[in-house]
Amino acid sequence: MKSIMIDLDACNGCLTCTLACAAAHSRSGSIVGAMQEKTPARIFIEAVNGRAVPVTCRHCEEPACAEACMTGAMRKDSLTGLVSNEGHEQKCVGCWMCIMACPYGAVTAHPRERVALKCDGCPGLPQPACVAACPNRALRYEEPAFFAAGRSRDAACSAAQAS
């Protein structure tokens, strides 16, 4: 199953992925529109001593967020492999148990609504919006094995395996 692979060396912290993510989840569908709507991004460019490190949901095999979810809203789809708290019969109530559980910090509180926010994998798009937008090819949508073969020395794959 394809997932978002991160090439740490290639990321230069331009934040384009966060803009594209917000755009894809905004009503307007555009970057400027998303900035005006204040649509939050679901991928994060974290700073480690000034260096940019992308952090986003890995759609884990056994997602801690789903295990912690007390409403059943957070669930891994057995077909797509995507973990999401949206689009299910059960609704997220914003108890933040998933935020407490996720070891990657990939789930956050929506800045204005009482709902947890995380990468939904952009269902319906050929590849996640962040990946499509990355100007540095630091984000790729690939089979983990393929990515690892292509960049065998890359630490990003060890991180992916560690998940």
């Binding site: 230069n12 331009c14 700073a47 940019a52």
Partner: peptide, 28 residues
């Protein structure tokens, strides 16, 4: 402000005209 955009840090972002901002990237 951390992390800061690598295009700006490297000076390869141009905002002079309304076609921009343009950035020099591996593909462009």
């Amino acid at each position: 402000q951390q992390p800061q955009c690598g295009f700006g840090m490297q000076g390869i972002c141009c905002q002079l005209c309304s076609h921009g901002p343009c950035r020099i990237t591996p593909k462009a």
